[in-house]
Amino acid sequence: MRRVTLLAALAAILPAAAMAASTSSVPVEGMPQLAFGHPEQGRLLVGQVVWQLIIFAALIYLMSRVVLPRVGAVIENRQARIAADLEAAQAAKTEADAAMAAHRAATEEARAAARAQVAAALQAAQAETDAKADALTARLNAQIAEAEARIEAARAAAMGALRGVAADTAEALVSKLVGRADRAAIEAAVGRELAARGRA
């Protein structure tokens, strides 16, 4: 509303001022700016400068004492606010970075712990497996040894029986051929023969 009033006042003043411009009674020769000899223009030219000095002094006073410090304060406030906000943002960013680094370290630590645990578990399992395998091997070895002993015994028994059978056979053969048999001699001969063949 105030703006409209101001514009309306301007619009009313301008044509009035322009109408007043053509009221010079004596014609002006040459440039009106330099018509110092003209009775009206000359006086107005001087008055113009005096008024200009007054008006310009008023402008300087209004600017330097009234409005410019306030405008400067507004701009400085804004700059201070922006600087403070930037600083706060910087601080927040540093904080976030620190938190991020801490988080990363914690993750790394947890990962390392997990790895160690996995490795320990693996090692334990390996040890258990090894122990079981060793026990099994030992048992199997024992069984093998036992079986071998049994085989050896059986073989020895078999070999012992062989000598008896051979002696009996030889006695029977000799008694059939010669009518009599010396048991002790035959046994000795069989023993010799078996020893010669490596079966004793």
């Binding site: 001022a17 411009a21 053509s22 002006v28 009106p32 223009q41 008055g47 113009q48």
Partner: peptide
């Protein structure tokens, strides 16, 4: 050039203090 001519504003009062439309 007549656009540059000065004229007092506010009739006799303006004339009395040489206050032209330029100063206005």
């Amino acid at each position: 050039l007549s656009q540059f001519e000065l004229s007092p504003v506010g009739g006799v009062f303006g004339w009395a203090v040489s206050f032209s439309q330029s100063n206005l």
